[in-house]
């Protein structure tokens, strides 16, 4: 009896699972209204950066331009919580320049005598905390929309590098029949199509470049994207360089390992293949 149960149990359990699944599979499906945003949503545009690829590095001049765009346009609403002023040294800024940049960004502190809330000039070790004290203040100033922190934006979206560029250059007039609610804007590169942020880069020369590059909207969008690639992955160049050395080293070591392996096995494997039956 026990043996019979043991014999039948798998069939019974398996049968029940299979039946439950097949009943579900053959159940007629309710008609689904397709989400209209899917048809409007566009894949990020093709655009390349110097940081792409195995040998990708940062173009410091471009990062500095992108930083300028961030400071003069994005920083009005967006923070860079993960980035400290001292990190700007990687963009080629001198310690004195960094101190000057930091100084302009007041930081919250307490009054040393009274303990009341106060502000002090920023230090290089401070971070880009942005213009709002907290989320409530940020929402209150932006029609209840929260300007996200940009530190990791290029890693926090699908194809993030291209996404930032596409979003900045992707504002358009809504197609006929698509209603954009009051206070929102049409941008097919944004996941839900209607975005609260108005087009931030609107006209050529909005940001003055000092290195002779022509500040077209396209150029500014590219530069600030490159800057945000850096804020999201500041160790990218180090990573690419270390990786190159590591892979070359490992390839040689593996090659030597393969030769050693062949040598060790030579008597057993490779000779029998040639036909020396006796030693097997």
């Amino acid at each position: 009896m026990g043996r019979l149960i043991a014999f039948l149990a798998p069939f019974a359990i398996g049968g029940v699972f299979v039946l439950a699944l097949l009943v579900g599979a053959f159940m007629p499906r309710d008609a689904v209204t397709p989400d209209p945003t899917i048809a409007l949503h566009k894949e990020a545009k093709e655009v390349s950066f110097k940081s792409d690829g195995v040998f990708g590095t940062f173009d410091k001049a471009q990062l500095q331009r992108g930083f300028k765009v961030y400071q003069e346009v994005c920083a009005a609403c967006h923070s860079l919580h993960q980035v400290a002023f001292r990190d700007l040294a990687a963009l080629g800024f001198t310690p004195a320049e960094i101190k000057a940049i930091a100084k302009k960004n007041d930081q919250p502190t307490i009054d040393e005598k009274t303990g009341d809330a106060a502000t002090r000039p920023g230090l290089p070790s401070d971070k880009f905390y942005g213009p709002y004290a907290n989320e409530v203040a940020a929402r209150a100033a932006n029609n209840n929309a929260l300007p996200p922190d940009l530190s990791l934006m290029t890693k926090a979206r699908e194809h993030g590098n291209r996404y930032v560029y596409s979003l900045l250059t992707g504002y358009a007039n809504a197609p006929a029949g698509w209603a954009v609610p009051q206070g929102l804007h049409y941008n097919p590169y944004f996941k839900s199509i209607n975005i609260a942020m108005p087009a931030p880069l609107t006209s050529e020369g909005q940001v003055e470049y000092t290195d002779g590059t022509k500040p077209t909207v396209d150029q500014m969008a590219k530069d600030v994207s490159a800057f945000l690639i850096w804020t999201a992955e500041p160790k990218l160049v180090e990573r690419h360089r270390t990786g190159f050395g590591a892979v070359i080293f490992l390839l040689i070591m593996t090659g030597l390992g393969y030769l050693s392996y062949r040598r060790v096995w030579a008597e057993i494997k490779y000779k029998t293949k040639k036909g020396e039956v006796a030693s097997a």
């Binding site: 080293f249 070591m253 030597l256 050693s260």
Partner: peptide, 23 residues
């Protein structure tokens, strides 16, 4: 005949492994 070459390969492999581990 094979001795010297074999030793060289074993030593080279071991040396690479050691350098890699140290790195």
């Amino acid at each position: 005949s094979g001795e010297r070459r074999r030793d060289f390969i074993y030593i080279a492999t071991g040396a690479f492994a050691a350098v890699g581990a140290a790195t």
